[in-house]
Every structure is written in C-alpha cells, then in structure tokens.
Design a binder for these strands. Structure first.
Length: 105
DNA sequence: GGGGTGACGCGTC
DNA sequence: CGACGCGCCACCC
C-alpha cells in the first residue's frame, strides 16, 4: 500500500491525546523506525492538515519546542500546550508526567 | 536523474 | 559540559 513513512507519521501524531505530548523520536519509533525522527520534523513542517495533526503536541527529546521554525512563532506552541494542562519547567515540557505513552495495540 | 537540506536522536571525541 | 558526525526519509532546485 502507499503507506510511506510520512503517512505513518501523520497517523501517529493524530493519535496523540489531549493534554499529552510526544517526542519526535517517539513518533518515529511508533511509526516504524526511530531514525525517522528527521522525517517527522519534515512531516510536521509540511503539516498538510494542522486541524487533525496536532504538531504542537510534538516536542524534541528535551521537551523543548522549535522556536525558530514553529508554525505560529514558537511561543504559540507553548501556549497551546499549557492551555491543555501541560506544565512547563524553565521552558521545557515535563515529559516525566506528560509524555504520551502509546497504547500497546 | 543527482545533490543538498531539514521542526531530530544518539553515540563518540 | 560542548561540539561533531552519522543515519533515515521526503521535498526542492
């Protein structure tokens, strides 16, 4: 089927529940290969469906957001996450409590 | 058709 | 602790 890395990545990102966040590596790993972390970044960069693809719930391994290339201006992503109840510490997401645990399906 | 780059992650020096 | 390189896929020129 035409399910490429891109498609799988979008599927995973769409599954991130409200109030939780996932890392690029996490999404990549669930999508099929953890080395796709870079592809995840590119996939979200393209973000063809921002309404269904909560790219703001995807953060890097440090729990930090990309201020330089964020869709709405970096801080925008932080605001959205905080609005969902995600706590930030020194600008970093508390991954220990808010990192999404993929359901073992 | 070929080459370079990128919203990353991890190992190594 | 910081900096660098490697790996992967898709898109742009």
């Amino acid at each position: 089927m035409g399910q490429s890395a891109f498609e799988k990545i979008y599927e995973v990102v769409k599954q991130i529940p409200y109030g939780q966040v996932a890392t690029y590596g996490q999404v990549a790993a669930i999508a099929g290969n953890r080395r796709w972390a870079r592809v995840v970044g590119y996939a979200l960069h393209a973000n063809p469906d921002p309404e269904h693809i909560p790219c703001h719930r995807v953060v890097n391994r440090e729990g930090r957001v990309s201020e330089a290339f964020a869709f709405g201006g970096g801080n925008r992503q932080v605001e959205l996450l905080m609005a969902e109840g995600v706590e930030f510490v020194n600008g970093y997401v508390d991954l220990a409590h808010y990192q999404w645990e993929r359901p073992s399906y």
